[in-house]
């Protein structure tokens, strides 16, 4: 029986080989083992979305995923959205609309929005509301967040496919 395990994890394009405890979540490993504290820990019951990351391109609550389940996967966190110091259009739009108040929910909102726009590049307002229904904002900045996502979608459509990290992540069913 194995209580610890070696896993391979590619995070924001960078490969890692890690020795982890099998009862540790992906959220814990990202924050504590890899020091990627952009992904937030909050409710730990899948309600708030502050811990949202992309697992092989698909948005998940990392507090409900064991790190060992992600063995072999590509993970994208909020730290992976900017490329070469250039902010992702979603990040630019969040800044422009003042969507970030205290900022705590914003990493999760940004990652959830990245997944939403990858699936549906020109979403309706209703689709945006549904797409971020799993991301709570204690500051109540929903109007600005929705405005930012719709604005970013328009910018990205005008600029052609943007080169965010998330866009290069392969999507499939590798068993994670």
């Amino acid at each position: 029986m194995t209580f610890a395990r070696r896993i391979d994890l590619t995070v924001n394009g960078r490969p890692h080989r890690l020795e982890i405890a099998v009862h540790h979540t992906l959220l814990e490993v990202l924050r504590d083992d890899l020091g990627l504290t952009g992904t937030k820990e909050c409710c730990l019951v899948g309600e708030c979305g502050a811990c949202t990351v992309l697992l092989d391109g698909i948005s998940v609550d990392s507090c409900l995923v064991l790190a060992v389940e992600a063995d072999g996967a590509e993970v994208t966190t909020v730290e992976g959205l900017a490329v070469d110091g250039r902010l992702h259009p979603l990040q630019e739009a969040f800044l422009a609309t003042g969507a970030a108040q205290c900022g705590f929910c914003i990493p999760g909102q940004l990652v959830a929005a990245t997944a939403l726009l990858a699936d549906d590049p020109q979403p309706t307002r209703a689709a945006v509301e549904e797409g971020i229904a799993g991301n709570l904002c204690r500051c109540g900045g929903y109007e600005q967040i929705i405005e930012a996502i719709l604005g970013a979608a328009a910018v990205m459509a005008a600029d052609g496919p943007a080169g965010g990290e998330a866009d290069s992540v392969a999507r499939g069913d590798p068993g994670r």
């Binding site: 899948g46 979305g49 949202t52 698909i58 948005s59 998940v60 609550d61 409900l64 995923v65 959830a112 997944a115 939403l116 549904e130 797409g131 229904a133 799993g134 991301n135």
Partner: peptide, 9 residues
């Protein structure tokens, strides 16, 4: 069921 993140898992 739940949110997008929940339905994905």
């Amino acid at each position: 069921v739940g949110s997008t993140q929940i339905r994905n898992r």
